[in-house]
């Protein structure tokens, strides 16, 4: 069986998709998949995904309906608005929600490991996270990734 090992380190909406899309698809193709979530990527394992947002700030490639100067992008509420617009667009285009993709990964036996060090660092509670995940460190990731066919840092 082929193996894919991913490290998810980002907690923004745009960077949350690749690990779950690749993970669920690889599982559908028969891969054994392991995703290690560390630093801001840990947010993707929380029951409440409302902290996963997108910001137009410092993100010049983000398509905007109207050109928006940087000083406007930093106004309060802009991040929430950009996130709402992006989620709305995704829904219209038939893109799965993060929660849906994450559930599809779990259903397909994709293994999720939360970085214990970052859990301690950010003082997260295990009760903040979804069920069915493991907690480990670099050695446990490397044990799986050592003979993986695909290994990506996202």
């Amino acid at each position: 069986m082929k193996k894919m090992a991913l490290i998810a380190t980002k907690g923004t909406l745009d960077m949350a998709y690749p690990p779950f899309i690749l993970g669920s698809t690889a599982a559908a193709l028969g891969y054994d998949v392991h995703i290690f979530f560390t630093f801001y990527g840990l947010t993707l394992l929380r029951k409440d995904l409302s902290d996963v947002k997108i910001s137009p700030l410092a993100n010049p490639a983000m398509p905007m309906p109207v050109p928006m100067p940087v000083f406007v992008q930093m106004l309060p509420g802009m991040e929430a608005m950009a996130t709402m617009m992006m989620k709305d667009k995704m829904k219209k285009k038939g893109v799965a929600s993060l929660a849906e993709l994450r559930a599809l990964c779990q259903e397909a036996d994709v293994k999720f490991t939360a970085c214990q060090m970052t859990v301690d660092l950010f003082e997260f509670e295990k009760s903040d996270f979804i069920d069915g995940i493991e907690y480990g460190g670099a050695a446990s990731f490397l044990e799986f990734a050592g003979d993986a066919d695909i290994c990506l840092f996202i």
Binding site: I21, S24, T25, A28, K93, G94, A96
Partner: peptide, 13 residues
């Protein structure tokens, strides 16, 4: 119909 990547593949599986 109306579904985007990777949903058609996941649903096919």
């Amino acid at each position: 119909r109306g579904l985007n990547c990777p949903l058609p593949i996941l649903k096919t599986k």
